[in-house]
């Protein structure tokens, strides 16, 4: 069933067959690349902490690409030697995500029911990196699955099938969480968080961020610098009117608009000011920062 196909221009993959084909742009800020590589070699699960839009997902993609690059030889069912890329399965967690959403469930079929593996099961089977984004949002029963997978056992119990799967060699669990906005209720439990090494992500320093913006958006260096400066200033407002600082992603959006000829002030208004808050006073304040920086 997992045939790669193409419907109206979009490429369709089975979850376990998706891998990052082209090298994603990622600008290392510290030693995170080395850390992750080492952790992967040791099969130590990784927790990525940081605010939204700071590059956590991009980092995982980048690492998946890097780790897949040495073209590990793998015999597929056909016995051919194919270029192996590190499969990456990303699951965005939400508050209704239950264990069975991850493991799999019976679906109805014409003649009865049929078992379908969930994304986590697939990752375990093929040895992919499974990235659970915003893991604290998920229901607590998911921790039942995470725990045996993240210690020495590397087991996934599938209760409904009465099976236990031993994870394939390449499998690694990576989770992310944003300590900023989750309420105390949704904090990660210690029994869970102490199974991971934690890499902290923060917004990159001004120069690095400008470089990222320039690369990602194609705007000129001066604009990129101004955007990075704006980002820094707006982040100063965090917790004093703003729940979360402006993400690099939004700055890149603004840069892309500017690069396409939208006037800078307008671009910042739609990509940053209005995107960040509905509070008119805070909006006005951000606007003043924007008009101070951009002509």
């Amino acid at each position: 069933m997992a045939e790669n196909g193409s419907v109206q221009g979009a490429t369709i993959y089975a979850v376990e067959e998706y891998s990052v084909h082209e090298e994603p742009y990622y600008l290392p800020i510290g030693d995170e690349v080395q850390l992750f590589e080492t952790a992967y070699r040791q099969r130590i699960p990784v927790l990525l902490k940081g605010p939204t839009g700071a590059g956590k997902t991009r980092f995982v993609e980048y690492m998946a690409y890097r780790l897949g690059r040495p073209m590990m030889k793998v015999s597929s069912r056909t016995g051919e030697e194919v270029e192996h890329r590190m499969p990456l399965i990303t699951v965005a967690c939400h508050e209704d995500l239950t264990a069975s959403d991850l493991v799999g469930r019976y679906l109805l079929d014409t003649d009865g029911t049929r078992w379908v593996d969930g994304p986590l099961t697939r990752a375990v089977k093929v040895g992919a990196i499974c990235y659970l984004d915003e893991v604290v949002e998920a229901r607590k029963d998911t921790t039942v699955l995470i725990h045996p997978l993240t210690d020495y056992r590397r087991l996934l119990p599938i209760e409904k099938l009465g099976q236990v799967i031993e994870a394939a060699d390449g499998f690694l669990l990576v989770i992310s969480y944003n300590p900023g906005y989750q309420s105390a209720l949704k904090d990660l439990k210690h029994s869970t968080r102490q199974r991971f090494i934690a890499i902290e992500f923060n917004y990159p320093p001004r120069d690095a961020e400008a470089q990222i913006i320039a690369h990602e958006s194609g705007c000129d260096d001066r604009t990129a610098m101004d955007l990075a400066r704006l980002g820094e200033k707006v982040r100063n407002l965090k917790e004093h009117g703003l729940g979360e600082g402006v993400s690099t992603r939004l700055l890149v959006y603004a840069g892309r608009l500017i690069a396409q000829g939208i006037p800078a002030r307008r671009a910042c208004q739609v990509a940053i000011t209005w995107a960040l808050t509905d509070d008119s006073e805070v909006q006005r304040s951000i606007e003043e920062v924007v008009t101070s920086i951009f002509e």
């Binding site: 200033k233 100063n236 407002l237 004093h240 009117g241 006073e281 304040s285 951000i286 920062v289 101070s292």
Partner: peptide
């Protein structure tokens, strides 16, 4: 808020 943004 403006000055807070500027000065941090």
């Amino acid at each position: 808020l403006y000055c807070k943004a500027l000065t941090g």
